[in-house]
């Protein structure tokens, strides 16, 4: 069962003695439903990674960093998790995110999606869907609405979209939300 796109899974392990890019490793590329599950079942669950590690699933040809041409004008829908959610929700939310991507859940705006990242952090884990054009309000909002619904977040939960350019300009990672749903 072929996927619409070929996807690459990346693993980031924080080693402060090395440059950021040297800590980023390509794990595998998949372009069928079957290969996706083979890859997913082969790697550790996100909740089992140590702090400072990330997984990223991106379309083949797009690197999981702001500097990539397909990312630099884009941004991310960010879901910030409370510490206790690692044990009860993180793996479900990350898998749901992956299924949204490979299943092409965002309809006419699937092309806007670049990938998704999960950050494992002591102070609270984060999951984000990255899109390519922060100024494309219709596309960004559609993706945000669908994504929030697929994650099963309550209407009281607000998730925000931040442009990478704004995030990069902030040292404390508290960039302002360009959109919220």
């Amino acid at each position: 069962h072929p996927l619409q796109y070929r996807w690459a899974l990346w693993f980031f392990k924080n080693d402060r003695s090395r440059a950021w890019q040297d800590n980023l490793h390509l794990v595998a590329k998949v372009n069928t439903v079957e290969d996706f599950w083979a890859m997913y079942s082969h790697v550790k669950l996100a909740s089992k990674l140590s702090s400072g590690c990330d997984y990223a699933l991106f379309k083949d040809g797009i690197e999981p960093m702001w500097e990539d041409n397909r990312n630099k004008r884009g941004g991310r829908w960010l879901v910030s998790l409370a510490k206790q959610q690692r044990h009860i929700e993180l793996d479900r939310l990350w898998l749901e995110t992956l299924l949204c991507l490979i299943g092409e859940s965002f309809e006419e705006y699937n092309r806007e999606v670049c990938g998704a990242v999960v950050n494992i952090r002591t102070k609270g884990d984060k999951i984000a869907v990255w899109t390519s054009e922060a100024e494309n309000q219709a596309g960004v909002l559609h993706i945000g609405h669908v994504y929030k619904e697929r994650l099963g977040l309550s209407s009281k939960t607000i998730i925000g979209y931040q442009a990478h350019a704004d995030t990069a300009a902030k040292s404390n990672s508290l960039a302002k939300n360009k959109f919220v749903v």
Binding site: V33, F36, G103, S105
Partner: peptide, 20 residues
């Protein structure tokens, strides 16, 4: 055509043995 798969369809493949 576009290859869209809903979550239930994708999940059905999760524990299928790989074809050899």
């Amino acid at each position: 055509g576009k290859k869209q798969y809903d979550r239930e369809f994708l999940l059905d493949f999760q524990f299928m043995p790989a074809c050899i």
